[in-house]
């Protein structure tokens, strides 16, 4: 967690430094497809070296945001910058690598041929063997790409994204359709790569995945950013921890006034307090002697996610949750 905090501070400093220092910079970006505003006024800054998760449900606008970022689509309004220039410039300069959603492997080439070809298009690629090693597919170099399992294919696409040694790597739902084991193996590979100081943006709809692998989570819903912060901050935003204990006959009176308590719920003889400062709440309970079968649990990220994304589409963009003040 200490690492995460430091990175967040570095990010804040970099923000003050201006857009040119940023790996990624969105300012009021809008992209509509017909009547649907898939990206609806996104402001986002990602500092160099950050690993950021773009979290949202299916159809929340993750892929559309990524398309704008990569220059595959132009925003209708607003500006998207990569390293201070346009996405096209960054792509031409070989500073971007990406693993796109729904792309299937090119048939009739071997893994080695494919990865070597992509490496050749970049100005300063890493050796092909190194990319295959990082992606965990060194032993598949001679195999045909169209004859691999789903997990292996995903890793080939990862190797394609990273072999150019790009400063920014973008992964659109990299673990969708992978089984649990393949997912863990993939993230191990990913972490080995991020340790080299690259900027990484990945999208996912798995909360645990975002929490475990990113310095920072950006929650997107209805094409807008509804929250931006660490997993810890997200949990706190949703009402912190859950403190439960047996009332043992005592009434619930006064519980709501205890320090940190946000809400009180009584089920039978058991009280459940939602608290944004569980330590203070527990000390206060101890002073009252109300600690029978005491249980303190963090609010789940699922709770946080549901709380953050249940906002109706009509809410103005200003409702973005400011996690720094929570």
């Amino acid at each position: 967690m200490a690492d995460t905090t430091e990175t967040a501070e570095t990010a804040a400093e970099a923000t003050a430094g201006g857009a040119a220092d940023q790996a990624v910079s969105f300012a009021g970006a809008v992209k509509a497809f017909g009547a649907v505003r898939a990206v609806d006024g996104v402001d986002l800054e990602i500092a160099r070296g950050e690993t950021v998760a773009l979290l949202g449900r299916n159809g929340a606008g993750k892929s559309s945001t990524i398309s704008l970022l990569l220059g595959l689509n132009e925003p209708d309004e607003g500006v998207v910058r990569l390293f201070g220039g346009t996405p096209e410039e960054a792509v031409r300069a070989g500073r971007v690598g990406a693993m796109l959603q729904d792309s299937r492997p090119v048939p009739r080439v071997t893994v080695g041929e494919l990865v070597a070809f992509v490496a050749g298009t970049y100005p300063a690629p890493m050796p092909v063997a190194e990319a295959l090693e990082l992606a965990g597919i060194a032993e598949l170099a001679g195999r045909r790409v169209d004859r691999l399992s789903g997990g292996q294919t995903q890793r080939v696409r990862f190797a394609v994204a990273l072999v150019g040694n790009p400063a920014l790597i973008v992964l659109d739902e990299p673990t969708a359709a992978l089984d649990v084991e393949a997912r863990y193996a993939f993230w191990d590979s990913m972490r080995a790569f991020t340790r080299r100081g690259h900027t990484v943006l990945f999208s996912t709809h798995y909360l645990e995945e975002a929490d475990a692998n990113a310095d920072r989570i950006v929650v997107i819903d209805h094409g807008r950013i509804v929250a931006d912060g660490t997993g810890e901050q997200l949990k706190r935003a949703a009402g912190g921890s859950l403190v439960a204990f047996d009332l043992a006959g005592a009434g619930p009176d006064g519980l709501a006034d205890l320090p940190g308590v946000v809400s009180v719920e009584v089920r039978g003889d058991r009280a459940r307090l939602r608290s944004d400062d569980s330590d203070a709440t527990v000390i206060a309970l101890a002073e009252r002697g109300a600690i029978r079968a005491l249980e303190v649990a963090p609010a789940s990220l699922d709770d946080a996610f549901l709380a953050l994304t249940s906002t109706p589409a009509s809410t103005p963009a200003a409702s973005r949750t400011s996690l720094e003040t929570v």
Partner: peptide, 13 residues
Amino acid sequence: IGWLRQLRITPMS
């Protein structure tokens, strides 16, 4: 299969 999209994000014009 999305290969043309993938090519668009390589430095090839």
